[in-house]
Amino acid sequence: MSHVWQEREHQDLDDFLIPQVLVKSPVKQSVGGQHLSDAFSMWFRGFPNLDYKETALKVLKDRVSIEWQVKGDHLGRFLGVAATGKPVLYCGTTTLVMFDQRIHAYCADVQVSSVMEQISPDPYVAKKTVGDDMYLTVNKLLHLNLTQRQIDCLALLCLRCDSRVISSKLNIKYNTFRTHVERTLPLIGLSSSRDVFDWALSSNTLEILINIALEKICTKCD
Rank of each mutant, 00 (worst) to 15 (best):
M1I: 10
M1D: 12
S2V: 06
H3L: 15
R8P: 01
H10D: 00
D14A: 07
F16I: 07
P19V: 10
P19Q: 04
Q20E: 15
V27T: 12
V27Q: 12
G32K: 07
G32F: 05
A39M: 14
G46Y: 12
P48Q: 13
P48Y: 13
L50P: 03
D51A: 15
K53C: 05
K58M: 12
V64Y: 05
G80I: 03
V81A: 01
A83C: 09
P87F: 09
L89C: 10
C91E: 11
T93K: 13
T93L: 15
M98K: 05
F99I: 04
F99P: 02
D100G: 01
D100E: 13
A105K: 06
A105S: 10
A105C: 01
Y106Q: 10
V110A: 07
V112P: 03
V112H: 03
S114G: 06
V115T: 11
Q118Y: 07
I119G: 05
I119W: 09
S120W: 02
P121S: 06
D122Q: 09
P123F: 09
P123N: 00
Y124W: 11
Y124H: 11
A126E: 15
K127W: 11
K128R: 14
T129F: 12
T129S: 15
D133N: 14
M134W: 14
M134S: 06
Y135D: 07
L136V: 06
T137N: 03
V138D: 08
K140L: 08
K140V: 02
L141M: 05
L144F: 01
L156G: 04
D162Q: 09
D162P: 01
D162F: 01
L170V: 09
I172M: 14
T179Q: 08
H180K: 03
L185A: 03
L185Y: 01
L185F: 04
P186C: 05
P186D: 04
I188F: 07
G189K: 15
S191M: 05
S193L: 08
V196P: 02
F197S: 10
F197H: 10
F197P: 01
W199I: 04
W199N: 10
A200K: 01
L201N: 05
N204F: 13
T205Y: 03
I210D: 03
E215P: 00
I217T: 06
T219S: 14
K220T: 12
C221S: 11
C221Y: 12
